[in-house]
Nucleic acid binder design. Structure first.
Lengths: 282, 282
DNA sequence: CGTCTCCTTGACACAGATCAATTAACGTGG
DNA sequence: CCACGTTAATTGATCTGTGTCAAGGAGACG
């Protein structure tokens, strides 16, 4: 049976307040790729590709990086079918990568928060098979892959970082790919957002979501109504306070407890609904 | 067929068609990591890490590779919590990686067919967070990561392959992570198995599944009963013939049509096989 | 031949999708 | 500043795809 779920595309028209807020204390949004970013002083460096580079290689790396024009909400960074030639690092804001299948259903593949790398999945096919769209005003660094890859041959530390970034990506994907209930997935999502807020230097209980309910739903493989309802349920049980995209976590531990089973590191706590489905056989 | 026949037949029928052909004069399975595998003559090389290496680096690479003892069905290659120190390449047979959540519910993260690399997701955490278990009698090459990684610094081509393998892994994961119906997922699964059979030199319509219905269900996030029912439905509509683990695809194009929406290449019209039936519901 | 394990099939239940309607922001133009 | 339109978010009422429970069947193996 055809079986259409959420099919509309929402290109986050959102609070511009969110974007810059988190970490642009020094730098006002650059409108046209003017100044080179300075990895050396970038607050995100520990989480970015040049993490742990020595001063000299770092300088060379900086020279490869280009700063990209700021993206307005809804603007594309790249599109399905574009040739891959560059990775991107999110400096401010938030983007989503998504693909629309032949039936018109949109699948949000990932959200990309401050400090994260976009485009890793295109290295192999050498072509983007997803659209990357800014959810709020965002800016990204532009890391030409050929140059980076070439440079990595000389600088093992960079090579290590590259491989780690890839592996981490795989690692994080396994979390959402499992078979979990809507509550578990949403709780895990909120915790993830919270953690990333903290990484970017923001508070971890006051969340200003960059994405719509629909984007969240498409990402978590739910209906938007379900996301809404579960948020309401969380609110009623005192876990959080939700007002549109403004979310306040009142009881993070409670959310952790719900989401725990999705954390690959912490298998061994908490309960979930479906008692068993058997396992084992060795 | 590439895989040894059903589970516990006579001890050690590593399918001669594959196993024997490329890796040894002897037809008997290697029980203890005796002979070094010869990447140079391995039929899988184009799909493996040393793809495209020049003769000299290839020889050095071969010297790093160790052959592993054959794994019996149900035997573990590694377990959750094991320290990561090596990647593995499947030479014969088929393995699954899986993790058990707090409730004892098993999640199959991936199946690993002939020619595929296992362990990529453990590079970053430097620890395995999944069990790797042989589904049928299998053998794997043992690729010590530190040595490989070190060697890759000298041989760019190998580095490229490593990154490509990682990226490909990410790429393939996006396929099953989407929001698809049970039919779509199962159809896509069968097509994937078929494609991998072909890669390994087998036929693409006569499939001998290495995994149980339960493994398939856990992988696709379904109940085993659902897998059974949908196979029955496919059979009734003439798409295939299913007898336990012996599956014959009668109408691969029909399956393609059902699974199309999951093919990342088809999104946006890149390189698509056929236009789909439209998404009208009713 | 019995036992075991995997697979299949049926009956029923429920989480979550779908349909539908209302309310709340946020423009925009007058 | 206020009507108006548009889109996002909520809430309620149903429907349904799949999960769950239960009961055989069919190979495999000793």
């Amino acid at each position: 049976m055809p079986w259409s779920r959420n099919r509309k595309t929402s290109a986050g028209t959102a609070d511009p307040a969110v974007a810059g807020a988190q970490l642009s204390g020094t730098t006002t949004p650059i409108k046209t790729g003017a100044a080179r970013p300075r990895c050396g002083t970038c607050i995100l460096r520990p989480h970015c590709l040049p993490a742990g580079l020595a001063p000299e290689p770092l300088r060379k790396f900086e020279n490869m990086v280009q700063h990209f024009a700021t993206l307005a909400p809804g603007e594309h960074l790249f599109r399905v079918g574009d040739t891959f030639h560059s990775l991107y690092a999110v400096r401010t804001g938030c983007l989503k990568t998504c693909a629309v299948d032949p039936n018109g259903r949109e699948h949000v593949l990932n959200f990309h928060f401050v400090g994260e790398i976009i485009g890793i999945d295109a290295i192999f096919p050498e072509q983007h098979f997803a659209d990357a769209i800014a959810l709020v005003e965002s800016s990204v660094c532009h890391l030409p892959y050929r140059a980076i890859s070439q440079f990595a041959r000389e600088v093992p530390e960079l090579q290590v970082q590259l491989v780690r970034a890839l592996s981490r990506h795989v690692f994080s994907m396994t979390s959402i790919s499992g078979d979990f209930s809507a509550e578990e997935r949403l709780a895990a999502f909120l915790i993830m957002v919270s953690a990333r807020h903290r990484l970017a230097g923001g508070g971890s209980t006051e969340l200003q979501l960059a994405m719509s309910r629909q984007d969240i739903a498409n990402y978590l493989r739910l209906a938007t109504e379900t996301v809404s309802r579960i948020l309401a349920r969380f609110q009623k049980s005192g876990l959080l306070q939700a007002n549109r995209r403004q979310i306040t976590l009142l009881n993070p531990d409670g959310l952790y407890a719900i989401a725990e089973c999705m954390n690959p590191y912490s298998r061994g706590g908490i309960n979930r609904r479906r008692p068993d489905k058997d396992a084992t056989r060795s």
